[in-house]
Amino acid sequence: MAKTDVELAVPVRRDPWITRDKVVHLLQTKGLLIAFALFLVAFSLASDRFASVDNISTVLRQVAIVGTIAVGVTIVVIGGNLDLSVGSLLSFSTVLVVDLHDKIGPGPAILIMFAAALAVGCVNGLLVGFARLNSLIVTLGMLSAIQGLTLIYSGGQNVDIADQEGTWFAFFGRDFLLGVAVPTWIFLGLAVILHVVLTRTTFGRKVFAVGGNPTAAAFSGVRRARVVFSTYLISAFCTACAAVILGSRVMGSQNNVGQGYELVVLAGVILGGTSLLGGSGSIPKTVVGVLILGFIQNGLLLLGYPYYAQWLVTWVVIILAVWLDVASKRGRLFTTTS
């Protein structure tokens, strides 16, 4: 193209510090972060308590469950698929670990719960990866099936841990480490590990390739099915981690505790800027997306709005965020479709 030739030929020239192009570029790449920062500043001015260390650590703890799941789902989405079964799986895993806790002790309960969650991940992975079925429908079916399994397992009863004080299981949901809540550690720890996996390993590269163009990936010798399968295992693993946090925090579980999580998680992932088309996105983006959701909720509550006000704000914010992204790629605000 003509442009590239010019770029290659022209020697480096000092540009003025601020140009229109630079501003546009900054808005395009860091638009969400800038909006996030402005939004934090606005809330801080409106409410004294908002910017306090206490409040921030509260938000970080509150978003830990959604965040932990979202980190796993991000990898599935980058791989070009969806996982709507995480909400049901969260219910199932939490009920399972809480119920088994009193029967066989916390250690074995956690182990069995992880095995069960990974088995669900395997089923998703087999159906989407190896049988190549549409991920939205498969995980929609799994959403329904796991919800049923949870109810069958619990007989429709909610479950509780009898001795809430005398178990180390409380550590995951209620304790602090170096002044930071354990759920926050789990969330951010998983985020860091999976970010490294995604950016520094061959597996991560394959996830991007498979999500970007599954056919080309296969023609390049990438074993697509295995990669997709693994993304579902990761998602199930993260959901199991979230179940430990949730079960430990509540010390009990309702049958439908995870209902609706799949879509809130997806909202966080999308808000962060990971494309549902696959092949692009990142874990840090998702962390930011989840934090924005958390701070919106927290800020509005502090300002005295009812809890459902956050849903209205989320409606607007999520569409604006994705619109900004789409519009910058398109180079114009609106589509030209007639």
């Binding site: 079925l133 079916g141 329904s144 099936a145 399994l149 109810l151 069958i152």
Partner: peptide
């Protein structure tokens, strides 16, 4: 029980 319907539905869908 109604729960089984959920499992059957999911299974049929897949």
């Amino acid at each position: 029980p109604a729960f089984y319907v959920l499992v059957v539905m999911g299974a049929i869908l897949i």
